[in-house]
């Protein structure tokens, strides 16, 4: 029987929302600074592998974390270098990096472990689960909210962190000015390229945690293409949340909810492939509903304004 109102179900929702949430926060930072980061998928995938490799070979979770962060930031840095400094179309570079990451992670995995499917042969470490004192003793609520992986709590903190960074710090102010009017930023001596570089690197940092959650918390191995579109889903979440951290948290939770529902469906015998479609269909439906809502707001906006804000040119 399908049961959606149990604390265990909410526990699952929070669990599967975590990686999307990290990446969606990364997407917000990029979007506020005016860059489209479709390489989030490859950032997550790369970090998932480098985290496992670093922790597996060092047997030290901290070194593993640093390895994951460096992996994610390396991809973000490459995206920044080619798009900002060599002026390549950022979407094309994103596509290229995503392609490279799918094959490249397998290549690197093979070099280091001799495996091609997953890193079963090395013992990776996992981030610990945390039981929150007091909270864990509350019935129902405690079951749903306590006992998650430490990265889950970090993800929630990152929502507040991103909000605080964007709206309270001077660097956040500069970052937003770069996204909204780069010429204005330039005219007061802000180095637009550098700000965008920093934004991309932050997104590499946050995205890396999303990837490490997949391979070092949710599971304890890296397997080929394990991110499975979560980077793209995060982009959808950030755009539905209008790049507002709390709105994005809601959107990401919605996608997490749909993924959890799909697990429940599988449990009652609905074919795996139909269940597998649920998260992706829900993203499309979410995008449509959001776009329709936006359209109703803008219906009266003059066309010449719309032409200038063509989503393609962004």
């Amino acid at each position: 029987m399908i049961n959606l109102l149990t604390p265990e179900f909410f526990f699952t929702v929070i669990r599967v929302t975590t990686p999307i949430l990290f990446a969606a926060m990364a997407a917000i930072i990029c979007s506020k600074s005016g860059v489209i980061n479709i390489a989030l998928e490859s950032i997550m995938l790369t970090a998932a592998l480098t985290g496992v490799l670093a922790s597996g070979f060092s047997q030290n979770i901290f070194i593993g974390m640093v390895g994951g962060i460096l992996g994610g930031m390396f991809i973000a840095g490459a995206l920044a270098y080619f798009s900002l400094y060599l002026k390549a179309d950022i979407i094309l570079v994103g596509i290229a990096l995503n392609l490279m990451a799918v094959g490249g992670t397998v290549f690197v995995m093979f070099v280091f472990t001799g495996d091609r499917g997953s890193t079963n042969s090395i013992r990776s470490l996992q981030f610990p689960d945390v039981n929150i004192p007091l909270l864990q003793d509350i019935p129902v609520v405690g079951t749903a909210l306590s006992g998650h992986n430490i990265l889950t709590y970090l993800a929630i903190l990152s929502v507040i962190g991103v909000w605080f960074f964007l709206s309270k710090t001077t660097y956040g102010l500069r970052l937003r000015s770069v996204g909204e009017n780069p010429d204005a930023a330039t005219s007061v001596g802000i180095d637009v390229r550098k700000v965008k570089l920093v934004a991309l690197l932050i997104s590499g940092f946050l995205g890396a945690f999303g990837g490490m959650y997949m391979s070092m918390a949710y599971l304890s191995v890296f397997s080929t293409n394990m991110v499975a579109g979560r980077g793209f889903i995060s982009l959808a979440a950030a755009s539905m949340g209008q790049a507002n951290p709390f709105g994005t948290l809601l959107a990401a939770s919605f996608f997490g909810l749909m993924e959890s529902v799909s697990y429940q469906l599988q449990a009652i015998g609905i074919p795996a492939q139909i269940v597998g479609m649920v998260p992706y269909v829900s993203v499309i439906i979410g995008l449509v509903l959001y776009a329709q809502y936006q359209q109703s707001l803008q219906k009266k906006k003059t066309l010449s304004k719309q032409l200038k804000e063509d989503p393609n040119e962004a």
Binding site: F82, A88, L92, V93, I95, A96, L97, L99, M100, V102, G103, G104, V106, F107
Partner: peptide, 10 residues
């Protein structure tokens, strides 16, 4: 070749 292909595009 994934790496070569990506590099060529970029």
């Amino acid at each position: 070749i994934a790496i070569i292909q990506g590099l060529i595009i970029i």
